[in-house]
């Protein structure tokens, strides 16, 4: 029993990481109609910024993380301002390839700015753990889970209850009409890219203590976030978050109880079969295409 609780607690932590990244992807998808393959790469780049501020510039970690968030805001703004804004006429598939170009640029710029050696980023709360029902969870784990949940709570509050959220939702539902109604869609898209970048760096900072900060830091997160989006459905903002937690929990349980070698493959296979029977994800609705 205690192992089970331990597993679920650990999964909630990975689940928060995936859901932050997935939320970034879905925000971009809904506002710009782009599958954001570079979410991981941008998060990786800004995690390097955090690590640089922490190790080389000697800032305290919390200040470094804030610095990383600022740099994420700037990268998000820049990407939208320089590139995405000018791609209105590009076909949807080609738009996704643009994010591939972004991956290449970020993967190329990072070693140029920060060197090729892997770096280390410690946890925000290095020691201490809390016993829960025979299992234990580190304070940093609690912080990750709590922080992830509160970021999402704030985002959903903004999306559902504020004027800005309304603007984002309008843009997501139909950009052209939104523009006719006086919604500043350009600004909305720009803010969406900035928010996604910040979510990316948060996921990156949470992932970093488990491994070292390298160019491949976010590959797994990116992949699982994309699959979470498919599992949850691309039509809602909360579907992918749900999908991310399900993937986080199911993965650890499968790896521990079924097979440490085949657990992950089984999970992906299960999701694949699930999509065949529910092609639009857990929450998604079928979009009726008119002929």
């Amino acid at each position: 029993m205690s192992t089970f609780v331990q597993l679920v607690l650990r999964s909630l932590e990975t689940g928060s990481i995936y859901s932050l990244a997935a939320l970034g992807i879905i925000i971009i998808y809904r506002t710009s109609n782009i599958t954001h393959f570079a979410q991981g790469a941008m998060g990786m780049f800004n995690t390097f910024v955090v690590t640089f501020l922490f190790t080389t510039a000697g800032m305290p970690l919390w200040l470094a993380i804030i610095g990383g968030m600022v740099s994420a805001l700037i990268t998000g703004f820049t990407v939208d301002f320089v590139i995405i804004r000018h791609t209105k006429k590009v076909s949807p598939v080609a738009k996704q390839i643009i994010t591939l170009g972004l991956i290449m640029i970020f993967v190329g710029v990072t070693p140029f700015l920060f060197g090729v050696d892997p770096l280390n980023l410690p946890q925000l709360i290095p020691t201490g753990s809390l016993p829960v029902a025979g299992a234990s969870i580190s304070f940093n784990g609690i912080l990750n889970i709590g922080f992830g949940l509160s970021v999402m709570a704030v985002l959903f509050y903004v999306l559902q209850r504020t004027k800005w959220g309304l603007a984002i939702r309008t843009t997501a539902s139909n950009e052209f009409t939104a523009r006719l109604m006086g919604v500043p869609t350009k600004t909305v898209t720009m803010v969406a890219w900035a928010v996604a970048a910040v979510l990316g760096v948060l996921a990156g900072v949470m992932t970093a203590p488990f491994t070292s900060v390298t160019l491949n830091l976010m590959d797994g997160v990116q992949l699982n976030a994309l699959i979470a989006c498919v599992l949850g459905g691309f039509q809602t903002f909360y579907g992918p978050v749900l999908g991310a937690y399900i993937i986080g929990i199911a993965k650890n349980l499968l790896v521990y109880y079924v097979s440490s070698v085949w657990g992950e493959q089984l999970l992906y296979l299960g999701i694949l079969i699930f999509i065949v029977f529910r092609p639009y994800g857990l929450i998604g609705k079928k979009i009726v295409k008119k002929v």
Binding site: I83, V90, K95, I98, G101, I103, G108
Partner: peptide, 20 residues
């Protein structure tokens, strides 16, 4: 390090933006 990557990434984006 990474120079070829950067140029290639920029190339991809430029081609898509101006040469769809």
């Amino acid at each position: 390090p990474g120079f070829a990557y950067i140029i290639n990434g920029i190339l991809i984006i430029v081609v898509i933006m101006y040469y769809p």
